[in-house]
Structure formats: structure tokens, C-alpha cells
Design a protein around this nucleic acid. Structure first.
Lengths: 192, 192
DNA sequence: ATGCTATGATTGAACGTTCATTCAGTTATG
DNA sequence: CATAACTGAATGAACGTTCAATCATAGCAT
């Protein structure tokens, strides 16, 4: 049983890495299988089609993000602290898992996301919505539709991570202090 | 000659629309040709390969954005005004050309962008860099690497447009006033 | 312990389809 | 008449998916 989970996960990770490196058009099932160390046919034991596999990767990554970020949230803290923690932890997750970031960035901007998957429940999105909703409820932030808030905050985090990844050693000095961006956004959304 | 330009442009637009709707994996040369009203083989009169065609679409869109935004910039104005104009015009361009936005969003987050095309000179990116550089030079904004600045500002604009497009009629009321986001970013980057 | 059987996972060659690309022939242009 | 654009059927490679055959496991009987 545990072995099955491992195999499924290694297929997901293999697809993830290939999509990160080559894009959706560059991840044939044959390569996914090879890198996962299984036969091509075996993938169809776990997924009905390649499309389902890609959707599976999205659910897998979403779940991992949710686990990481939610486990580090502390509801008893002041909301401002929680916000900056959220920012830090989400950033941290992507820095620890750059391939996940690459996949996620591609997926959410692709037609995969708009058509099929936005209807399915997504634990991470629900958690993030709830996170911002509780900020509104507690009076810490302005009333802004929490879905819109989540998209805005998360896409800024994504940009920051992308900048950090792409420009790692190119111009480390004299940059904007990227951490300041979180304060900037906070100033914009908090209830004054 | 003009006819040639038109044909090339209709191939580019056809590819653009297909990629926007179906993603890179869903735009076979045969369909691109069909929708452009040319034979499949004709595409190879204008582009050496499908990859070159996709790169061509990127250059085409970049050029269009640059034309639109730069033509509406007025260097004699105060920089703050120019910044808000930049924001407004870039947003406007994508609202007028939603397929261009869909393509651009996908392309810049894909491996196409990181590998090949970031080395090629890009008129729009150069113009935007210069735009932010002149803000720094004039003392209107803090010293921040202009490339980083451009990425941050542009990805916020992209998010705002994406929200507007995706949620058009779903919850128009009671939202964050999306225009406020520009002020928020301006407050963060201006020299105080 | 040992052998037998049933169940289900796993394999990879084979299949039919679709794709990017080519090219011999045709048409338009000046 | 020469040049260049244009066509679309042809080509072969690559792809997603299937499936008959093989293997691993666990339960049960001896």
C-alpha cells in the first residue's frame, strides 16, 4: 500500500519536473514513465489519461502548499503577524521546491486552469480564501473580496520568487529589498 | 509587399488566438494555417519552424505593446503622472486585446521565455527598463534595479487584468477598487 | 514450511492517430 | 517568361493509449 503511494508520487514528481523544465508540450508520457522508473503503461493504473495526470499534479502541489503554509499558521496570533508569516512561508515553500513553483506558475496561467480545474474544489485555495476572510472578519483588513485578495497577494509572492530564482547571482546587490514588498501590500490592504 | 505583411500577421494572430484558447500543446500548425486562411506549407515561407513562429508571436505582441504604451507616454510630464499613465495604458492595451494578454501570460511563465528568448533584444522590455530608469534618474523613484521594477509593476498589472477578465460578471460589486493597486505600488516605489 | 491459486500490479511492444515538416506541382506577379 | 509565393498530399517521427503476457503477493491447504 505504501509502495503504491510512493509510485504514484514518483510519477507525479517526474511529470512536475519535466513540465517545469520543458513545458506541457515537452513532457511525453514515455519520458514521465522513464524518469519515474516505471513502464509507460503503469501510469494508466493511476491516471485515466495524460490530462488527468496533469490535473493530478496540480492537486498534488496545491495540497503540499496547503500543508506547509497552514501548518505554520498560528490562529492565536495577531492578524498582522499571521499575514507576514503567510508571506514568508509561501515564499519559503517555493524556494525549497523550485520545480513546484515553475509548474504552478505555468499551470495557473494556462487554459488547463481556466477550463477544467477551477470548478473542482481546491484545498489550498479554500484555505487561502478562509485565511483572508478571517482577516476581514477580525477587522484587521479592509473588505475586499477574499478571492481577489488571494490572487493579488499570491501573484506578488510568485513574482518575488520568480525574480529570486531568475536573477539569483546576477545582481544581488543594490536591488530592491524584496522583503519590503510584503509591507507595501500590507499597507495597501490593512484597515487604517 | 503589404499583402505579405498581412499574411504574416494573420498567421501570427491565428497562432496567438489558438495558444490563448488551447495552450501551446493545442495549436498544431495545421490549425494555425486553417484559421489564418493559408496552406500549412505557407507558414514555412515566413517561419523556419513552429518554435520560431511562437517566438515570432512573442516579438509581435511585445512590439504592439510597446507601440501602444510608448505612443501614449509624454516625457515632458511629471514622472508621477507618467507612471499612472503607464499603468492605465498597459492595462488598457490588454483589455482591448484579451487574446494578447492570454498569450503573454502563458509565454512569460513558460520555458520558452527563460531559455531562448530572454537573450534576444526585446524592444518593449528595453523601453520599460528605460521608462523606470528615467524615473530613478529624475529622482522620482527610489533606486531599484529597473528590470526588477518592471517585472514587479508589470506582473501586478497582469494580475489586475486577469482578475478583470476572469471575474467580469461574477462579483463586480464590493470588490477592491482595482485602480487603487496602482497607488499602492506607487507609494512603495516613490522617493519620499 | 511448501506448494497452489487467485488477484492485481507491471511491463513494453504494438496500434492508430496526430503532428511538424517537405516538396513537386500550380498559380500569381511584374 | 522568370521569379517567387503558394498549395496540400505525402512522409516519417513521435505521441497517447491499449493489451496480452509476465510477475509479485497473499491466502489457503497440505
Amino acid at each position: 500500500m505504501e509502495n503504491l503511494q510512493n509510485k504514484k508520487e514518483s510519477i507525479l514528481e517526474s511529470a512536475l519536473v519535466l513540465i517545469n523544465e520543458q513545458g506541457f508540450h515537452g513532457c511525453p508520457v514515455s519520458k514521465v514513465a522513464k524518469n519515474a522508473g516505471v513502464a509507460a503503461g503503469s501510469i494508466y493504473t493511476y491516471f485515466d489519461s495524460k490530462e488527468e495526470l496533469i490535473m493530478g499534479v496540480f492537486e498534488y502541489v496545491s495540497e503540499k502548499i496547503k500543508e506547509y503554509v497552514s501548518s505554520k499558521d498560528d490562529e492565536s496570533m495577531e492578524y498582522e503577524i499571521r499575514f507576514f508569516n503567510y508571506w514568508k512561508n509561501y515564499t519559503e515553500y517555493f524556494e525549497l521546491n523550485p520545480a513546484h513553483h515553475g509548474f504552478y506558475d505555468q499551470f495557473v496561467n494556462s487554459p488547463f486552469h481556466s477550463e477544467n480545474s477551477q470548478l473542482k474544489p481546491n484545498g489550498w485555495h479554500e484555505w487561502a480564501n478562509q485565511f483572508f476572510q478571517s482577516g476581514i472578519d477580525s477587522g484587521a483588513i479592509k473588505y475586499i473580496n477574499p478571492t481577489v485578495l488571494a490572487i493579488l497577494v499570491n501573484s506578488n509572492i510568485n513574482s518575488v520568487v520568480r525574480i529570486k530564482n531568475n536573477f539569483k547571482n546576477r545582481f544581488a546587490e543594490k536591488n530592491v529589498n524584496l522583503e519590503e514588498i510584503s509591507s507595501l501590500i500590507w499597507e495597501g490592504i490593512r484597515n487604517k
